[in-house]
Structures are given as C-alpha cells and as structure tokens.
Amino acid sequence: MLRAPKFELATPTSLGEAIALLAEAGPSGMVIAGGTDLMPNLKHELFTPSLVVSLARIPELHGIRRATDGSLVIGAMSSLESIAENALVREQAPALAQAASLIAGPQLRSMGTLGGNVLLDTRCQWYNQTYFWREALGFCLKKDGSKYHVVEGGAKCVAAASNDSAPALMTLDAELGFESAAGRRSVRIEEFWLADGIFNKRHAQGEILVELTIPKTPAGHRGAYGKLRERGSIDFPLLGVAARLDVDDQGTVSRADLVVTALAARPHRVTKAGELLVGTRPGDPQGELAAEFRARLAELARLAHKQCHPLENIPGDAAWRKAMVPVYVRRTFEAAARRAGPVHHL
C-alpha cells in the first residue's frame, strides 16, 4: 500500500500545548486536523514533516455557537458534516452549509473539518501525484522542481484553490481567528488569499486556525452554492460558485456578492455583482423571477465568464469549465433568490 513517510505524532490536549509543540518543531512540524487532505499529501510525499501535531483533542477548537452579537462562531475542528447539518449554519449561512454538503463523500465529510477545508492545499494534476510519478515528470514548480507544466512556457504556479468552503465564507465576510506563539490574530478571509499556487494563503508557520466568525446575516439573507464536478460525490470542484443576495423587507436586493473558485490559485470575487444586482427585485421566490433581475443576472454571468480563465491545472476540460461559469453563476443566483440550492447536477 502507498505509505506515509515516517513522522512522530503529538496529540496535545490544549491549544497552548499545541502552539508550543509547533513553535519548537519549526518548519518540520505540521498540523493534522481531519487528515483528509494531509494524509494523501503525505502518502504522495508532498510533505515530509518530522512532527505532526493533531488538533483532535483540543476542546477549544470544537463547537458551533451564536455569539452575543448574533455572529456565528465555528470551531475550526467542526466536521464538514456538522456544518452541513447544523441548523444555525443552515439558517444564517446557507451557502456555507450547502458547500459543506457537497465536499467529497460521506466518510470524508465526517472526518474532514471546516478549518482543514479552509487551509486545503492548492491542487494540480502535475502535483497531486505519487513521488514516483512526479519523479518521472521531473517534478514541478510547486514541489521539488523548477519546471512548469500547465501551460508550456509558463512561469508561475497556477495550482487551483479547490476548497468549496472558501467562496461561501467570502460572501459571508468570515473572519479567521488564528493563534500562535506570537499571540492571537484575526484576518478577514477576503485578505487571506494570495494569487500563488505554491502557497496561496497568508498563513504563518506555527499558526493554528482556532475559529471562524461569520457576522450576523440580515433576516432577508439568501445564499447558495453551486458546484461543478464530474461525479455526484467524492470529486473536488471543477468550478465553485457562491452567491449572496440580501433582500430587504421591501423585496429589494440590498447586497449581492459573487465569488467563484477552483479556477486559479485563489478564489475570485466578481466585484460587479453588487453594482448589477443591488436595487433589483428578484420577485417571488416561489414563482417566476422578475425580468429585470434576470436580465441583470445575465449581464453578471457574461461578466464573470469574461473574467475567468481556467487552465488545465486540475483534471477536467478547461474550456468546458469556462463555459460553465455563466451557467453556474446564473443558476446559483437563481437558487439563492428562490431560497433553494445547492446547484449541483444531481
């Protein structure tokens, strides 16, 4: 069987203990949460840590609660299954619940954590392979090599952000709370990403993601997530679309947001969403959506199509992924408007 390289495992029972272990280990230490991303990556020898620190036994990292200001606070070790099923999350952050429900398959959702999905390594067909395969390739820019393979003559790693939760969390203005030897740090998820496939996050060595905070969403908040993938289960996204529509009590859109992912190294916000949709009235969620809303949405879908340039980074037909951007943008917003979703081919 494909085997993980040797390492030592620590199972601290407090955050302080974990931070101290990581600080001591330095670059040779890694964190394991659910293990669903790290373990395959270890077996592929993409990482060869000498110490792996498990977060499983740290109580502070667990639990989903509503804070006094109404915001939603989610422990980073909350399982994806619990995110998908939790009533608070479904009510306040439907796009996140929907995204979590479509990640991988049932077992991986019961093992995988929200924190782990946020911190998921970028993915690429030239990278997520065994050591043997990568050796036969001559390795790549992201790991062990200097060659670029996605586009001949390219120079920059374009491994794709493949975490379904990220775009949903961006539309929800989530804040990530980290703790490290240097103390506590909070970062808006919008500012967390880097456009670099090699390492696409502002995440320092030794920092532990403790919790995610989602500010209270208004009563008329509607959100949806759309996921393009080949199978109805297990697969990573070929395209992920998170849509947000806040509708005031007059039935008018007061806020709209669109983030797409799985195309490039970081999730991409289509900034014109607000400009185009705010002020429109989607119409009756049960009946026909309003013509003007649909026209604006079509314009937004066209714009998103123009802005997205998927490459052959992850397996899957890049031209088809591009062609699906407007379709999924439109369908995901329609689902949001109807308080429906997720948008998925099944």
Binding site: Q125, R231, G232, D235, P315
Partner: peptide, 28 residues
C-alpha cells in the same frame, strides 16, 4: 461517460488513482 485511461503528452498516466479515474458512485 466518465472513465478514461490515457497518458498525457509526456507519456505519464493522466490520473493513476481512483480519484482521477472516476468510477461512478451510487448516485451516478
């Protein structure tokens, strides 16, 4: 519909795993 066993332009198998060689699941 789903499966394809092929090598890429360098002669490497394009996806020698059960993640990238996609067998249908019960919902497919």
């Amino acid at each position: 519909l789903l499966e394809e066993h092929r090598v890429n332009r360098l002669g490497l198998h394009a996806g020698p795993s059960l993640l990238d060689y996609r067998l249908p699941t019960s919902v497919d």
